[in-house]
Write a protein that binds this DNA or RNA. Structure first.
Lengths: 120, 120
DNA sequence: TTTACATCTTCAAATTTTTGCAGATATTAG
DNA sequence: CTAATATCTGCAAAAATTTGAAGATGTAAA
């Protein structure tokens, strides 16, 4: 089995993991460092069980790691560069919103928000 | 509706488009420039109809564009940087193959193969 | 021009699986 | 016991992949 097929499969799997808005937002929430599950559940306004499920999937694929402290569990990105790399994908969604200038503005805004050097 | 939710959705959609091994390989085949459908169908060893359908999806999301010439249709990446960005994702699959050193080797090999400055 | 063949796209349809999600129930710690 | 997470269960909806056949277009030979 040629390497490129194997690797393409692995990549495809990771992309599938990332192909959910909630999980993308979770990763971006972890950009600045550790956050506990409860905080994430509040910030994303999702049922705690949902957040847990998403985190479990990210954990299985080793995109995040946990640290327990008392009854709180703090998550952080295994490789912090992941958050930046994802933002890099914004470049390629611009073609999708040719006729929606308001969406374009959203992209600009979020790119700033999801930047390492954000003052937010 | 907050921008970050909208943008996260758009990103998630792109990831879904990319979450198929065939489509990843197609994009990498287009890294060096235009290729016609028949060649792609031979290189990937897939039925022509499937290649067409994959390309149609990529076209809808404006990741590729076509150019007709006689009975051939040549496709190229709308934004050539896409191929590189996808390869950038290799960084994050390493955690997945902790116990498979052979797969690690595949990653190294393919990263070289799918690099802009590849001599291959 | 008619025939044939090559390239590419689209349709139809079966298949198969997913996949997201909520609510209840565990588990663990204080 | 209560609070914080995790997992389980099952449904619902949605969907994506895939194949083969048929259609469209283009070229070139007879």
């Amino acid at each position: 089995m040629p390497s490129r097929i194997i690797v393409a499969r692995e990549l495809a799997e990771i992309y599938k993991v990332l192909s959910h808005p909630d999980r993308i937002r979770l990763i971006e929430e972890l950009r600045a460092g550790e956050v506990d599950v409860n905080t994430l559940h509040e910030r994303l306004d999702l049922p705690a069980s949902r957040v847990s499920q998403h985190l479990a999937l990210l954990r299985i694929h080793r995109l995040v790691e946990e640290r327990r402290e008392g009854r709180h569990v703090f998550y952080h990105l295994t490789q912090p560069a992941l958050a930046d790399w994802i933002v890099g994908g914004l470049t390629f969604i611009e073609g999708r919103m040719v006729d929606q200038s308001d969406h374009r503005r959203d992209v600009v805004e979020v790119r700033k928000l999801w930047s390492t050097d954000a003052s937010a």
